[in-house]
Nucleic acid binder design. Sequence first.
DNA 1: ACGCTCATTCTACGGCCGTTGACCGAGCCT
DNA 2: AGGCTCGGTCAACGGCCGTAGAATGAGCGT
Lengths: 201, 201
Amino acid sequence: MTEPSPRLTRAQQRRQTEGKILAAARQMFAELGFERTTIRAVAKAAGVDGGLVMHYFGTKDELFARAAEPSTGELTGAAPGEMAEALLTSLATRLDGEPVASLALLRSMLTNPDAATRYRAAAEPQLGQIAAGIPADDARLRAGLLSAIVHGVIIERYLLRFGSLTDASPEEIIELLRPCFQLLAAEQTRAEQHESAVNPP
Amino acid sequence: MTEPSPRLTRAQQRRQTEGKILAAARQMFAELGFERTTIRAVAKAAGVDGGLVMHYFGTKDELFARAAEPSTGELTGAAPGEMAEALLTSLATRLDGEPVASLALLRSMLTNPDAATRYRAAAEPQLGQIAAGIPADDARLRAGLLSAIVHGVIIERYLLRFGSLTDASPEEIIELLRPCFQLLAAEQTRAEQHESAVNPP
DNA sequence: ACGCTCATTCTACGGCCGTTGACCGAGCCT
DNA sequence: AGGCTCGGTCAACGGCCGTAGAATGAGCGT
């Protein structure tokens, strides 16, 4: 009664087990952050022994690096006038069904220096792309603010679970944010912005 | 050659030592977060023994609670039209010379459940105050967004140290944010907002 | 002046963690 | 078929951490 051909070849088995470990690690990193997730706990959640995790990934940092690989967001080449809308759709995508991987990185970046470096490395080029799409002399600052708003919203919605943001639908949030994004991504002097905001037509 | 009266009475000494411990704890909680700061390290930074910290504060969580006591922000009773400006001056105050205590709570709230609870408890009434100053039916959501923006900016400036936000002066940031805050805190239907943003005069 | 109080230190315990290396057994190549 | 490979387990080590408790010595009330 021996199987003539095993259900899974060894390489398949390896990839599947690695996948289970990575999935469990992502989940725990996202929920607990780097310091509070244990290799033993990840292993148990994945149904394997702790030593195997070390055998595959060598070190906890390496496991985190593999589990929190940034999902490359696509903002390439938005026309100057469309940067605000591109950012909004990107945010809308992340607002329903935020991928766990992104949360793992976000949750850990404030306490784990390596996660912070990794996050900066992932965010820096995106920041440049955003800035490139903003026709203003302080484009980089505006891009930084837009990035701060996006991350602030995601953090309060998914990590802190503030009621007012958790209950709202993505559309509501996007609608309220749209004019802000358009102001920040638009070509306007500060005086003009202030003028049109203080004395709305 | 004995001192007839000691430079510090025992009660004074106690308060001073406690202060040094709390200051060191604040600093380390702000820089490293809850899990990475050790009682021993805090004690060494304060120039005392680790056991003393326990003797005074009983537990690490209690030490954190005392070190991260929220500095009560004042937003009480702003007129509906002035809520945006009140939030901006509050943000401006925090933007130059952010007190370390606030950073300790911010850094730890994403990984320490107790810190998260404490933060929510501190933020909830403020959120209510903000919402009360916004004459719109979705006031709470708007308040949540405003709060998210404030915290996003502070996190990226002080905790993540993004260049574009770290280098900017508080005034620059405030000026860019002012129209956003006025839009979010203003009485406008979503349609009107969208209209005036899509077709600027 | 005597004894109590209390700030402060020292030592140690138990536990959990990351990491290691020996070990087992089932695929895989020749 | 036999030996090598490699996925997977097990037990253990060393370290650091939070915490407890005994010991010391200097103010302070009476």
